[in-house]
């Protein structure tokens, strides 16, 4: 398997293997290949007029900043109450974890697992995953490159699903409005939780996956 991959990787010839070494760069939006100019790392894409960079500028710094922001916001998002239930005049606040525990006690395990995954596991996995990738770039760990790329793709894909709990609360606010008997509204953690979603999504956008692969000289070259 590994041999086959290397074969395809070098089928272009003995010359440069990555676009950066070949003096080429790719437009991130329309995927047009344009040549780098030796004096400048950025140019305008002739096809879609976007600015093209060899690598996204300041990628590591922005991604670190956004990941750390979301890590800080994660605490109030999980510890403060996210929902307020008024039932017959008495007020009750519940955090994300309370909601999940409620479902497990009720016996609806399926829905409990869905919410647990979307609201707790996804944000934690995203933050941990991006930090792991950033650290591995910093220390130039040259292993598991393909798996790291796959993990990043997965992080990109799951990012938006954390909004689930916010949508549920927004819907409950409207639909559970039985006057004095029972009303539901959002509570302070909702704002922090939105902040976590936005900053982790932005962290995934500012990150450049090609940096993962820049840590290694392609294996076929090392053998020579």
């Amino acid at each position: 398997m590994n041999n086959r991959q290397n074969d395809i990787a070098c089928n272009v010839g003995q010359g440069p293997v990555t676009g950066k070494e070949a003096g080429l760069m790719i437009c991130h939006y329309c995927h047009k290949v344009v040549s780098c100019h030796d004096y400048d790392e950025a140019t305008i894409c002739p096809r879609c007029c976007a600015t093209v960079h060899t690598r996204k500028p300041g990628s590591i710094t922005y991604t670190w900043a956004l990941v750390l922001t979301s890590l800080i916001l994660l605490f109030p998002a999980n510890l403060l109450p996210i929902m307020q239930v008024d039932y017959l005049g008495s007020q009750e606040y519940s955090t994300i974890m309370d909601g999940i525990i409620y479902f497990f006690k009720e016996g609806s395990y399926g829905i409990g697992i869905v919410i647990l995954t979307a609201s707790v596991l996804v944000p934690v996995f995203k933050i941990a995953g991006i930090m792991l990738i950033l650290l591995s770039i910093h220390f130039r760990w040259k292993t598991w490159l393909r798996h790291k790329t796959m993990m990043f793709r997965f992080i990109e894909f799951i990012g938006r699903w954390s909004m689930l709990d916010i949508f549920v609360i927004a819907l409950l606010t409207v639909l559970v409005n039985f006057g004095f008997f029972s009303t539901i509204s959002a509570a302070s953690a909702a704002t922090y939780f939105c902040g976590v979603v936005i900053s982790t999504m932005l962290a995934a956008i500012t990150f450049d996956t090609r940096l993962i692969w820049d840590t290694c000289i392609p294996p076929n070259r090392e053998e020579e």
């Binding site: 990787a9 272009v12 990555t18 070949a22 080429l24 290949v33 790329t149 090609r210 692969w213």
Partner: peptide, 14 residues
């Protein structure tokens, strides 16, 4: 036609 992989910058033939 030469293309580049948008995610790992590998030089490839289309």
């Amino acid at each position: 036609k030469i293309i580049l992989c948008p995610e790992c910058d590998l030089l490839l033939e289309m």
